[in-house]
């Protein structure tokens, strides 16, 4: 028990002195993981779409050649970046570029370098996930879209990708959580993420285990929060589990009767002129009706129907009684 008290005291000591650097480490880690995952998903989607463009025997030979070339390039990209550790990719990019170009080309900010490495790495994983997500959508969906005349791009953006995205949401979540943890290797290029804060703190305080405890708790909090949010997002994407029957649908009433008048024509309801004349017309009718009431012509009918004239009612509706 005393050990736990000791640990608590050490953590408190660390937090007092390095708390701000832990906090900013968490911030940087989350931003890097989020941006990297988003750009990675984008890369993955582009690769996935390019990979699934259909090419038939009837296509132009040049088109088939380019599609083949694209597929080979994507394949190489996926295999290389999926098959090497991210820590080495970071080193290659950050130190390799200036080495080969005599400092002519280099990353001036570790942020840019870190985001590029995480994005490219995530993209390589996502390319395969997206391809799988697209394949997993029932081929009937593609046929349904084609049958109403959609092009490949329209089919993809309206029908297939939304469903593929839903299917690969768990994968995206996986990648995000992996990125939250694996961005810890970015200390190698001096990126100030959460794990770098740990290294800085223990370098000065020698409180190795207490700091590691802080790290553990920090990473677990971040990933738990992430999985919670992802589950919520998935639920949102599924839409409502029930639906309302529309008994009196306003569209049904007008379906087929509305003839889409030309803009600014007298029939256009949005035409200010038409609106004014409609208002004049309704006023005129109201005055006429009130005149008639005064003359007692409608008094009998009014009593029978029990209508109470408020003076503001829609004259058209009243006219139906």
């Amino acid at each position: 028990m005393t050990k736990f008290a000791q640990l608590g005291a050490d953590i408190a000591k660390l937090w007092l002195k390095y708390g701000h650097s832990y906090i900013s480490g968490i911030e940087n880690t989350l931003i890097l993981a989020l941006v990297g995952t988003l750009i990675g998903c984008l890369i993955g989607f582009i690769c996935g779409i390019l990979n699934t463009i259909p090419s038939g025997k009837n296509d132009h030979p040049l088109k088939r050649f380019f599609l083949g070339l694209i597929r080979v390039v994507i394949r190489i990209y996926v295999e290389v970046f999926r098959g090497t550790p991210m820590v080495l990719q970071a080193v290659f990019l950050y130190y390799g570029l200036p080495y080969f170009t005599d400092n002519a080309v280099k990353f001036t900010s570790v942020w840019a370098a870190a985001i590029v490495v995480v994005s490219i790495n995530t993209g390589a994983y996502m390319a395969e996930s997206v391809r799988g997500g697209i394949i997993s959508v029932d081929p009937g969906q593609t046929e349904g879209a084609k049958a109403i005349g959609m092009t490949h791009v329209q089919t993809m953006t309206s029908v297939i990708l939304p469903q593929a995205l839903r299917n690969i949401m768990p994968q995206i979540g996986n990648n995000f959580i992996i990125n939250v943890k694996d961005t810890s290797v970015m200390f190698i290029i001096g990126f100030p993420e959460f794990f770098a804060a740990h290294r800085a703190a223990v370098g000065a305080s020698y409180l190795y285990f207490p700091s590691a405890t802080v790290e553990m708790a920090g990473y677990l909090t971040m990933t738990l929060l992430a999985s919670f949010l992802l589950r919520w997002a998935e639920k949102k994407m599924d839409g409502a589990s029930s639906y309302e029957l529309v008994q009196v649908d306003p569209l049904t009433m007008t379906a087929g009767t509305y003839s889409f008048p030309d803009k600014r024509s007298p029939f256009d309801e949005r035409n200010p002129e038409a609106e004014k004349s409609a208002l004049r017309e309704s006023l005129r009718r109201q005055i006429e009706r009130e005149e008639a009431l005064r003359q007692g012509q409608l008094a009998e009918q009014r009593r029978d129907n029990g209508i109470h004239d408020t003076g503001f009612g829609n004259p058209d509706q009243r006219g139906e009684h």
Binding site: D138, Q141, G144, V159, Q163
Partner: peptide, 10 residues
């Protein structure tokens, strides 16, 4: 119109 409907599920 298809045997398996092929309505867009999304």
């Amino acid at each position: 119109v298809f045997q398996s409907f092929n309505l867009f599920n999304n």
